[in-house]
Amino acid sequence: GAIGGGLAQAQEAELDPNTWEEVTSYCNFYEFGTGKTDPASYAGQMTTSPWEVEIDGMVDNPGTYGFDQILSEMTLEERIYRFRCVEAWSMVIPWQGFELADLLNLAGVQEGAKYVAFETLLRPDEMPGTRYPVLDWPYREGLRLDEAMNPLTIMATGIFGKPLPNQNGAPLRLVVPWKYGFKSIKSVVKITLTDQEPPTSWNMANAREYGFYSNVNPEVDHPRWSQASERRIGGGLFSRRQPTLMFNGYEAEVASLYEGLDLTKNF
């Protein structure tokens, strides 16, 4: 697709993407197992066509949207974003997708909606990891409406100019580049507009460690990992750590969303 937007263009120019192999072989997608290579090994069995997304809640046009129908309405563009996992590793990924705001506008967000909730496919016969209670399935995530409408927030359909591989969340996933990776929910089948903060999977599993916001913040430590620095995937056995950037380097674009909010309490 054409390169559009204009946002984050300055950063894009200096970002050097990881390789296809790195992005597609090192994944967290617990529906296929907790090992980093499990998704690449087992996600192939997930049926991604046909694919439908149910959009419901406080929208004017609730209903089931086919993946092809969504694509026909959206303009795809490339976004090269930093991707920072809460486990303190990171990548740079060239995504193709469209702004989530465009999809939400298609559904028609009603007055009073404050949050957007997302759900991942739950199909145990194709997702071996869901046979174990690692998390309370299906995987759920959520954003505040203004975060969802921010132009940086996209629904990705591809990487490196190719359709998303299953292990990366085919055929349609969220990408919120200033938040830890687990917020960028994969293989989305349901989007709900609501006026209540929606329950989110990792927050439900361990609220002390995973907040609703989960913005990348080098000053707020995760109880198990320091978030001050990160290791970029692909540097080999002697790779050096690099400092983590506030809001993963998107401070100029998103800091205003959190004005007046205590980020150590709302982590």
Binding site: K36, I233, L237
Partner: peptide, 15 residues
Amino acid sequence: LGLTGGLGVEPIKAL
């Protein structure tokens, strides 16, 4: 293996 790519793209954690 870690030195030569046999432990995947993040050899430090793997090792």
